[in-house]
Nucleic acid binder design. Structure first.
Lengths: 138, 138
DNA sequence: CAGAATCCAACTGGATACTG
DNA sequence: CAGTATCCAGTTGGATTCTG
């Protein structure tokens, strides 16, 4: 049932997943699943991502063979991004995970609240992370 | 086909995926999919993870309601971790993604090599990341 | 428009030493 | 055994400014 051999070194898998685990990667791949998009379109559609990070993330995706980057040297310049076959293939498990996250977010939020209630004590080691989550929940 | 409404604010989804995207999270969840485990077992089975990071990751997973933490106050102490129903549910899309990563890693590595060949020029902006990948590939 | 460059705060993860 | 407490390097991501 678990497709990963326990004796296999799975860190390479983590290496790829770490890429996908970037803050915006899944959102970008999901958006590109609808079809080719210009840089600015992606930026506007996602919202809240900085230009630098979007550029870097798209370059990573290009490097891994998930998207193509097509430059049209006009004035103003135009750059289109599109999923490759590999990228569309990746979209399947990624969008499944995205859907899961969307569906189960309420449960996770409930679990977090419950954790806060049941562990009201300090836990000084983890104050940073907890503050982070409380802020994200606002 | 894409289950995420383009007009929905998807950053909350990224918030949950960001947790899962931690360096070891997927490996830990996958391992716990085989059944309850003690702290030291997980640590040995994964290998290369520091005690601090494993503790923090397990606490995050507990907080989100993916694992239970059972303390047996003996000497020496014993702590067991086990997936909750929600965690086992999460395991489905997560192991699908893990399997995908494992199967397609060769393609990604080829794509990266090709990218290096086709873009031998500097790209000073991304030297850090590239060095990082080359090291990981060793 | 799509970036490149720079500066900078925040977070991640590792090493080490200590404890009930 | 299973942590907790520090310290620390490296990475991520954001804001701003500048360019073809």
């Amino acid at each position: 049932m678990i497709p990963i051999d326990p004796h296999h070194d799975c860190r390479p898998v983590g290496e790829i997943l770490h890429q996908i685990g970037g803050k915006w990667t899944v959102l970008i791949i999901t958006r590109l699943g609808h079809g080719s998009m210009r840089f600015g379109e992606i930026k506007r559609m996602i919202g809240g991502i900085s230009q630098k990070v979007l550029t870097a993330t798209l370059r990573d995706l290009e490097m891994d063979g998930f998207v193509t980057r097509t430059v049209t040297p006009s004035i103003p310049p135009r750059v289109d991004y599109e999923l490759t076959a590999l990228g569309r293939d990746l979209l399947v498990p990624v969008s499944a995970l995205g859907a899961w996250a969307q569906e189960n977010r309420p449960k996770v939020l409930v679990a977090r609240q419950q954790y806060f209630d049941e562990h009201p004590d300090a836990m000084p080691m983890r104050q940073g992370r907890i503050a982070q989550l409380k802020q994200a929940a606002e």
